[in-house]
């Protein structure tokens, strides 16, 4: 059996507490500029000081504080987008799988259409028409997610509805809605939870990419993607502006994926029964 991935769990826990307690933890404001202190390197580089442990950016903003507040945006977006996109995908997957036939055909062609659509382009379009902001970002990322959720859940439901307990539920007089809620849904929740954890990484990267492209949360609100974007012009002389949030994204996504892998193995009943 796989070992509990303690290091990823600790990293995820640290990032979540960073997001929750950002105002208490951050040494400075994430948006106040101190131009006197601009472009200071991190403490372990020549010229760095304990005053700004991770250095400052071109406007003299503390990178550590921006990183801590940036975790907020990333995790809120992840939570909202996974709830919205995952929830829609779960519902569509269950309905398509259970009813089959024409309903299934129509819904699955919608899923195919969603897969062929370039998500980034659509997000940019949304940003232009609806304006930048958290809502736009969440809608754009949800649209990217729901189709893969729907397809996988539908497959699971197709297998599930062949089981005798579904036919017996009909014999006992359950309505289709009741069967989907009490017999199908509880049996796909495992799969759903695994999909959620495996997609946290996707969402965080999508948020970072969209913010980098300017379709995300507008500046000066700190997000990790925006921080990378800010520093790209100075990568030669002030690498820390981009590299530090880059490391943060890598660490979080890697941790979440390792955690998701472990969850998948843990919750797979075929493995559990061994």
């Amino acid at each position: 059996m796989h070992r509990v991935p303690w290091i990823p769990i600790v990293i995820i826990a640290v990032m979540i507490s960073m997001a929750v307690f950002a105002p208490q933890l951050a040494p400075y404001s994430p948006i106040d500029q101190t131009l006197r202190d601009k472009l200071l390197p991190p403490v372990w580089v020549d010229g760095g000081s304990m005053k700004y442990i991770l250095g400052t950016d071109a406007f003299g903003r503390d990178i550590l504080s921006r990183l801590i507040f940036g975790a907020r945006v990333s995790l809120i977006v992840a939570l909202l987008a996974l709830t919205a996109g995952g929830g829609v995908g779960l519902t569509i997957g269950i309905v398509a799988g259970y009813f089959g036939g024409t309903v299934d055909n129509v819904l699955m062609r919608l899923v195919d259409a969603a897969f062929t659509f370039p998500a980034i382009l659509f997000a940019l379009l949304l940003a232009v028409t609806m304006g930048q902001g958290l809502t736009t970002l969440v809608i754009a990322i949800s649209l990217l997610l729901w189709a893969s959720f729907a397809r996988i859940i539908r497959g699971e439901v197709l297998a599930l509805k062949q089981r005798d307990f579904v036919a017996l539920a009909r014999v006992r007089g359950c309505s289709p809605a009741r069967i989907m809620l009490t017999h199908i849904l509880p049996n796909v929740l495992n799969t759903f939870m695994v999909l959620v954890t495996l997609n946290i990484g996707v969402v965080i990267i999508a948020e970072a990419s969209l913010s980098f492209l300017g379709a995300g949360v507008p500046p000066p609100t700190p997000t990790w993607g925006l921080m990378i974007s800010d520093g790209r012009g100075r990568i030669a002389d002030a690498w820390w502006i981009s590299v530090i949030p880059g490391i943060a994204i890598t660490l979080l996504v890697l941790s979440v994926n390792l955690f998701g892998d472990w969850m998948r193995d843990r919750l797979d009943p075929r493995l559990r029964q061994l």
């Binding site: 089981r163 005798d164 307990f165 017996l168 539920a169 017999h183 509880p186 009943p269």
Partner: peptide, 8 residues
């Protein structure tokens, strides 16, 4: 093995 809902 198939006629009872494992989650109920």
């Amino acid at each position: 093995w198939s006629s009872l809902n494992p989650r109920m």
